[in-house]
Write a protein that binds this DNA or RNA. Structure first.
Lengths: 346, 346
DNA sequence: TTGTAAGCGTTATCAT
DNA sequence: ATGATAACGCTTACAA
């Protein structure tokens, strides 16, 4: 029972705190918004009583008036995919530290954007949205998100025409793939590797297209013939089957450049356990991502690494900058890649 | 431009839809709440116009009056942990289908509950909370969650005294581990395995304590001596190191029962790649969870399986039942386990 | 520095 | 079946 003779049932409101502290409810509101002016001792008193009453401002009410939900929508096709789960993990931690929370939505894994989902998500009024969907153009996203700012992951390429004279239209994260891929190709070249195969990811995904294109460019620049392409979909099972096909029906290869680490694992397992080949002696394998499992002894994978924490910091920076300046011109952040050399090339 | 000569900038409100459709804003609200009475043709008209204007009811406003945010808080120590990422994935899909969204929070991975986090989460007013934290008693959770219902994952054990005469105090999911563990032990017994080691998970976590206890019980019931226990923490790296210790410094083992699949992978890699032992010929390995990687050829792990989709369905059922009947007595759902036999025992 | 009053967009209540 | 009106809990003018 509290002073009013009532059980502290349900949730304490600013009103109750105000009564208990003998101040107006506005003072309570001010106590929780640090930028406002309030006598320090009064603020302390209010915060103390608030804690006693277990009071926290209601974010729904706050959102209604401030237009900020402090919700960041994250759309993913597949939470279990390692790279994405690691990114979600780091992102959630970072957002939490900034006073936001991650609102998770799942979409179909075929990389198509579901407009129903967007409409659904919009109801929750996220302050910003990060779509892990690969082939969604921000112009689609923006139709459904008025307050929210879509963030676009871009893969710049030397050959591609850049944006118009006014710069990009949407906030974006530029991922420079050249560094890591060039190092990987150099390494293979150093071992005199001839027939290089690229095992694709989901064929239409932008990251896959970008990876393949950059690989071609890098190999051409180094005087190598273009890679042969084998179709995959970023999954272990498909990679496993495709590798068997490649060696049983096709011509095999001296090195396989897999579009992500998980498919590299499929490749390695197929080579070793099904085809009786040695990695790296018979076939060399390179992956993409550097997920945590890549250092496991069964794989010990040489792979092109994205710096995850750098990436998450960049994303959070974009979100915060945009929320602070809603009308600023399109923002950009840039991210580099590099090669992590382990045991599958050598 | 719309009829009013304004860009459809920002978000459409019920008011605008009402004006456009020549009805009151209450009618618009009713059109979006199917249980209300509204002439079908009128509802259709309103919904059509709403779609044209790209209108969706604002959930923050709705929450303010209805007391329902349609947010389900999910607290995890580690999103990347594979079992949890699979569960989050499935849960998000299921919740989405019921009109809810997953609000993700990360806590420290030492399995202690952070009260600050709970207070923080409470500000978002989740309708319900699922804590993947292992050693949080619902009595702690409930202090911070007034509207929300904590759901407790319970591991019943024959020896343990059950709840008082009034049944359990909180909604819970009972996970019956006996089935799968008993089958695993029977299999090992069938291969005449002598020295069985249990590689623990995080020692204080409830799931780990429950697994070890059940293993002891089952082995005793089958006339086997108690397992030796090696300390782990559910991680690959610790399992890897602990296994090397066990065989280099300690007495080794004929079979290792790992507390989860990921540590089973660490065990297998250490045995094969560091100690030069064969699995299953020299040492047999059993895991716990049946995550997707368990069928990968490098491991092909025999493991105790929880039916994930059944588990998620049960959780969602608990949430919905509780929201429909806030005052119902504590609800329960029950889940079974079974053994998936693959190549690491034989 | 502080309090009063208005309003955010919705749903519930009570009329009609 | 439908519409007016009053909440919901908070923040942001504006006034003191």
């Amino acid at each position: 029972m509290d002073k009013d003779g009532q059980m502290a049932r349900g949730r304490a409101t600013a009103e109750m705190v105000a009564r208990q502290a003998n101040v107006s409810r506005v003072a309570v509101s001010r106590a929780f918004n640090s930028h406002t002016s309030l006598k320090p001792e009064k603020r302390e008193l209010i915060l103390r009583i608030a804690q006693e009453l277990n009071y926290t401002p209601d974010r729904a009410a706050r959102a209604l008036v401030s237009g900020r939900t402090h919700l960041i929508g994250v759309i993913v096709p597949d939470v279990c995919s390692y790279w994405e789960s690691q990114e979600i993990d780091a992102l959630t931690t970072a957002l939490q530290n900034e006073g936001f929370a991650t609102l998770l939505f799942k979409t179909r894994s075929d990389f198509s954007m579901d407009e129903k989902l967007l409409a659904y998500m919009r109801g929750f009024n996220p302050d910003s949205v990060i779509a892990f969907m690969e082939n969604v153009r921000p112009s689609t996203l923006v139709r459904f998100l008025d307050r929210a700012v879509p963030i676009y992951v871009h893969y710049p390429h030397p050959d591609a025409e850049d944006d118009g004279e006014d710069g990009p239209l949407y906030d974006r994260l530029n991922v420079l793939q050249h560094g890591g891929i060039d190092q990987a190709v150099a390494l293979l070249q150093g071992y005199n590797t001839r027939r290089i195969v690229y095992l694709s990811g989901a064929v239409k995904s932008r990251s896959n297209v970008a990876r393949e294109k950059m690989l071609r460019t890098v190999m051409a620049a180094r005087g190598l013939p273009p890679p042969r392409v084998v179709i995959g979909d970023y999954s272990y099972d498909t990679a496993y089957a495709a590798t068997i096909d490649l060696f049983r029906v096709g011509d095999g290869a001296d090195a396989i450049f897999a579009s992500n680490d998980v498919s590299a694992f499929g490749v390695i397992d197929a080579l070793r356990h099904e085809l009786g080949l040695r990695v790296p002696e018979d076939v060399k394998v390179v992956g993409f991502d550097d997920i945590a499992q890549s250092h496991w002894k069964s794989y010990d994978l040489t792979t092109v690494k994205f710096d995850l924490s750098e990436r998450v910091r960049a994303l959070v920076r974009l979100i915060l900058r945009r929320l602070n300046e809603p009308d600023a011109p399109a923002l950009q952040e840039t991210l580099h890649t590099s090669l992590v050399v382990r045991g599958t090339v050598g």
